[in-house]
Amino acid sequence: MKVVVSRSGGFAGIRTTWEVQVDEQPDRSTWAEMLSGLPWDEVSETAPQPDRYVYRIRCAPHEVVLGEQQVHGPWQELIDRVRGVNEGH
């Protein structure tokens, strides 16, 4: 299972992408539990805001697009965790 987080927008408009292969992680059961507990179907669409980030999170069969203002709680935890794996933390 692969998780892909893309961040675009912001002041510079640069797109950054992080991904993790959950099956290759030593704590894959913790990852699976986190992913299954996310409110995938409860995300409401919001209009993009100038100079703010937009996050696209994909983990088949799920995909959500979150405005920066929507990134909190479990979504923030997931994004931080995916970034941490990619940045070696």
Rank of each mutant, 00 (worst) to 15 (best):
M1Y: 06
M1P: 04
K2Q: 15
V3G: 02
V4P: 01
V4Q: 01
V4C: 01
V5S: 07
R7L: 14
G9D: 09
G9M: 11
G9Y: 10
F11K: 09
A12D: 12
I14L: 10
I14Y: 09
R15C: 10
R15N: 08
T16N: 13
E19S: 15
V22A: 07
D23Y: 07
D23L: 06
E24W: 06
E24R: 12
D27G: 06
R28N: 06
S29D: 13
W31N: 02
A32F: 01
A32R: 12
E33H: 11
M34Y: 02
L35Q: 03
L35E: 05
S36K: 04
S36G: 03
S36Q: 13
G37E: 10
G37A: 07
P39L: 05
V43S: 05
V43W: 11
V43K: 05
S44Y: 12
S44P: 00
E45M: 11
T46V: 14
T46E: 15
A47K: 13
Q49C: 07
Q49A: 14
Q49E: 15
D51Y: 14
D51M: 14
R52W: 12
R52P: 00
R52N: 09
R52H: 12
Y55A: 10
Y55W: 15
R56N: 07
I57D: 00
I57R: 02
R58V: 14
C59Q: 07
C59S: 10
C59E: 04
C59V: 03
A60S: 03
A60V: 05
A60Y: 03
P61H: 03
H62Y: 14
E63D: 02
V64K: 01
V65W: 01
V65L: 05
G67I: 00
E68S: 07
E68I: 00
Q69I: 00
Q69P: 00
Q69C: 00
Q70R: 04
Q70K: 05
Q70L: 00
Q70P: 02
H72Y: 08
H72V: 00
G73Y: 03
P74E: 05
P74D: 01
W75E: 03
Q76W: 04
E77N: 02
E77M: 02
L78R: 02
I79V: 14
V82Y: 01
V82R: 01
V82N: 00
R83F: 09
V85K: 05
N86C: 15
E87G: 06
E87T: 11
G88R: 12
G88D: 14
H89L: 14
H89V: 12
